[in-house]
Amino acid sequence: MHFHMHGRGCGPRGRDFARGFGGGRGGWERFAGEVAARWDEAQRSGGGRRRMFDGGELRLVLLRLIADAPRHGYELIKAIEELTGGAYAPSPGVVYPSLTMLGEMELIAEQASEGARKRFAVTPSGEAHLAERAEEVAALIARLTGLGQERHRGDHAPVRRAIANLRHAVQNRLHGEMDAETAHAIAAVIDEAVQKIERL
């Protein structure tokens, strides 16, 4: 993906394209945000699979999360990652231009916060926009949570954790003093667990 720049502008066709995003500095920020989003998602998808988000879908997700609670950009990234069970997290290069666009659309507003990071809150216009697109927003959130459920469906981490805990507990008892009665009791507990697992 490349663009040929001419002088301070970008040629008539480039100017016409930017004008579709509002023209001026804000227009180019929108243009850059869309380019960054498309490039980031194409890289993540390997070029052959469907992108996680198309067009303004990411903006809708961010707006929904901000409406739930005012958040920083990093908090939004982590919130999406949590929704997907760690399967997907948008990059800062996509999130921050999207936040800029939401601000220019007056759907969110910067809120006073400590430190250098900007915290954003939804505006009345943002609430109205979410109400108008409620079905689409619900579908997008369902897509994210579904991705997390698919990941956890094949995740054996809980079983591996339980096995490690069992091994650790048994080893600790074996390293200490143990009479025959205690040894038989531990063996009986393990045998019972094995039988229950085999019946699942």
Rank of each mutant, 00 (worst) to 15 (best):
R119A: 14
R119P: 04
R119G: 06
R119W: 11
R119M: 15
F120D: 06
F120N: 13
F120C: 12
F120L: 10
A121K: 09
A121F: 00
A121Q: 04
A121C: 01
V122L: 11
V122C: 10
T123I: 06
P124R: 10
P124A: 13
P124K: 07
P124F: 12
P124G: 11
P124T: 05
S125M: 08
S125N: 08
S125F: 13
S125T: 09
G126L: 03
E127Q: 08
E127F: 01
A128R: 03
A128E: 05
A128T: 04
A128Y: 03
H129A: 12
H129K: 08
H129T: 10
L130R: 01
L130M: 00
A131T: 02
E132M: 07
E132L: 06
R133Y: 01
R133M: 07
E135H: 13
E135V: 12
E135D: 15
E135M: 11
E136K: 13
E136S: 05
E136R: 09
V137M: 01
V137Q: 04
V137E: 02
V137R: 01
V137G: 03
V137A: 09
A138M: 01
A138V: 00
A138F: 01
A139K: 08
A139S: 14
L140H: 08
L140S: 10
L140F: 09
L140K: 04
L140N: 07
L140C: 02
L140P: 07
I141E: 14
I141S: 11
A142E: 12
A142W: 05
A142H: 10
A142I: 05
A142S: 13
R143L: 05
R143N: 11
R143T: 06
R143I: 02
L144V: 12
L144C: 04
L144W: 04
T145W: 06
T145V: 15
T145H: 02
T145S: 14
T145P: 07
G146K: 04
G146S: 06
G146Q: 11
L147P: 02
L147F: 00
L147Y: 02
L147K: 03
L147R: 05
L147T: 00
G148P: 10
G148E: 05
G148D: 08
G148C: 09
G148M: 11
G148Q: 05
G148K: 05
E150K: 05
E150L: 11
E150T: 07
E150R: 13
E150W: 01
R151H: 09
R151G: 03
R151C: 04
R151E: 02
R151Q: 07
H152E: 15
H152Y: 10
R153N: 08
R153A: 15
G154P: 08
G154R: 11
G154C: 11
D155N: 14
H156S: 11
H156N: 13
H156F: 14
H156D: 15
A157Y: 15
A157G: 09
A157D: 14
P158Y: 15
P158I: 14
